[in-house]
Design a protein around this nucleic acid. Structure first.
Length: 311
DNA sequence: TAACCTTTCATCCGGCCCAG
DNA sequence: CTGGGCCGGATGAAAGGTTA
């Protein structure tokens, strides 16, 4: 049971409806468009925003006459918090029915592009099995896009690498993965138990060219005082494997698909690195100041339970 | 029952666009 | 360049519903 101090009730002179209007205006970039979307009148939205701004002594929108509105920095931050509060409000209203039924509603989930195809299919299947009434909406992207979506409240959770993440994000480690060497099966080094970076450095490399990932893979060599020779760069994980399988070079990767073949059917070999190299954590991240909805908590629990098996 | 909130309607104001 | 039309936000009045 939640007990509000009387003081905090007295100072809560805003309503969830006002917050919903605020978020709708932010989403549509226009008071009128938000009014149409919510089947209400434009003046009502306008006055709700004005009341919120007066209540908090902040300006949330810059008004552009006949050109809609845009968020101020304060507005961006406030809208992100308002989204979270509204998600909890939805949580609360569903809690009553959930007492006799299962969890339900929408979970906005971000996922790093290379992690998604390996972990999500089974995670989402398990999610559907355990929580059939929760629908998960996926937002794929790179680290920057995922962080932006988290901080703006577009997504509640993101599954990604703990690589240069903002300190304002809380992260829950699900799995630690070491980089490995990917070689074509016919490569002279493919018969070894492990491969030394010393041996790899002079050879042509195929680099997974995603922001943060590329710096990480190159740093694996630099920490040994070596410099990789990059022949091909691509943002496509499976193209890295295809290029390597066809003999265009070796690659360093962290994620290990179950199949030893490229799309083209060429054989690949994954070998550990001889030297001590920095591992990467696969984490679930969310803004520290935000409390998770029950839907999101359910997903976190499910990930913790199942991701070591899936990996 | 009074106070308050939400909503709608009518209207105003300012900016943009375009034809002349 | 100018004036009219259009668009979109702001404001005030009034009605209806809720709450203390």
């Amino acid at each position: 049971m939640i007990i509000f101090p009387t003081g905090s009730i007295n100072i809560m002179q805003y309503t969830l409806r006002q917050l919903a209007y605020l978020v709708a205006v932010a989403d549509h970039g226009s008071v009128t468009a938000a009014a149409n979307a919510l089947y209400t009148s434009q003046p009502g939205i306008s006055s709700a925003i004005a009341q919120l701004e007066a209540q908090f002594g902040l300006q949330f929108f810059i008004r552009h006459h006949a050109k809609g509105v845009s968020l101020t920095p304060a507005g961006q931050s406030f809208v992100a918090a308002a989204r979270n509060l509204l998600a909890h409000a939805e949580d609360l209203s569903q809690h009553a029915s959930a007492l006799s039924q299962s969890l339900q509603g929408n979970l906005e989930l971000g996922c790093f592009t290379t992690i998604a195809p390996i972990f999500l299919p089974r995670l989402l299947a398990a999610m559907r099995e355990d929580y059939p009434d929760i629908s998960v909406r996926l937002h794929e992207g790179d680290t920057e896009q995922l962080q932006q979506a988290l901080l703006s409240g577009q997504t509640e959770l993101a599954l990604l690498y703990d690589l240069d993440l903002a300190p304002s994000l809380y992260r829950q480690t699900l799995q630690t993965v070491l980089p490995y060497v990917l070689l074509p099966a016919a490569h002279p080094l493919a018969g070894q138990v492990a491969v030394s970076l010393q041996d790899l450095a002079p050879l042509p490399m195929v680099l997974l060219d995603l922001p943060h990932s590329r710096e990480y893979f190159l740093s694996v060599f630099r920490l040994q005082g070596l410099e990789a020779r990059v022949r091909h760069k691509t943002v496509n994980f499976e193209l890295v494997r295809g290029l390597v399988a066809a003999g265009n070079g070796y690659a360093l990767l962290n994620l290990r698909p179950q199949t030893p073949q490229s799309y083209a059917g060429d054989q690949l070999v994954c070998l550990p690195i001889v030297e001590e190299v920095p591992a990467l954590n696969i984490v679930l991240a969310w803004p520290q100041e935000l409390r998770l909805t029950r839907r999101a908590e359910a997903f976190v629990t499910l990930c913790e339970r199942s991701i070591s098996r899936l990996g």
